[in-house]
Amino acid sequence: MQNSPSYAIESNDLSIHYGAFTAVKGVNLKIERLKITAIIGPSGCGKSTLLRSFNRMNDFVPGCHATGELLMQGQNLYSKDIDPVEVRRKIGMVFQKPNPFPKSIYENIAWGARINGFKGNMDELVEQSLRSAALWDEVKDKLQESAYALSGGQQQRLCIARTIAIQPEIILMDEPASALDPISTLRIEELMQELKKNYTILIVTHNMQQAARASDYTAMMMIDDQRAGGVIEFDDTKNIFTRPKDKRTEDYVTGRFG
């Protein structure tokens, strides 16, 4: 089955299970290329689980497995002949808490490139990645210093730089600003608008304003009575936040959920 070229990735009745328990059920999402798609929903609705299934990060969770299809360029990322390492090479990830390596700023970016067999000019790659992450001017004079000396917001942008250094096609962001102050948060959101020129971005956030500000499309997730999460509404972000169709989405975005 071939997915349409305008979609970067497409899920086809994707479900994620922990042992016998289904955490996320029957997700059909078509993620547009070079757009930002936000996944929102109340705590425990499985949005992080869904996001992590996109680069098979859930493989590390014991008992966790997926059913259905996740199609990228016509290839099911969950088929047997696909190596999860290859998936993660194409689909990078930025995590909730900034998690730079306890190494120098330079090495933070170079390491990922090196282990992936990068053969080009490393200095150039480091500079380019830092520039793309809008961090170069702040760190160009202290590349050999520890990444831990940076502020939280800078660390998160370093993590983004590290991710784009390996030139993925899609970047997953798991609540990338939840540990940051408002200014750093806005900076990350601004950066996302820059990044979407070259990358498809999928972001999980429980900050609705962030989803409203930063994304083009929004998927609303909610758990059903079996406690399995699912996408209940997927639409243009502007529709989701001004005239949602589903009552539950309405209740959630107006803060009347629960």
Partner: peptide, 27 residues
């Protein structure tokens, strides 16, 4: 050694061995 460090390594496409050898063990 925090899991976030392992995930960071996996996130940039490291194999399990690379993650253990370069990050888990030194730390």
């Amino acid at each position: 050694v925090p899991d976030s460090l392992r995930q960071a390594a996996y996130g940039v496409g490291a194999t399990r061995w690379q993650t253990v050898w370069h990050h888990v063990l030194p730390n």
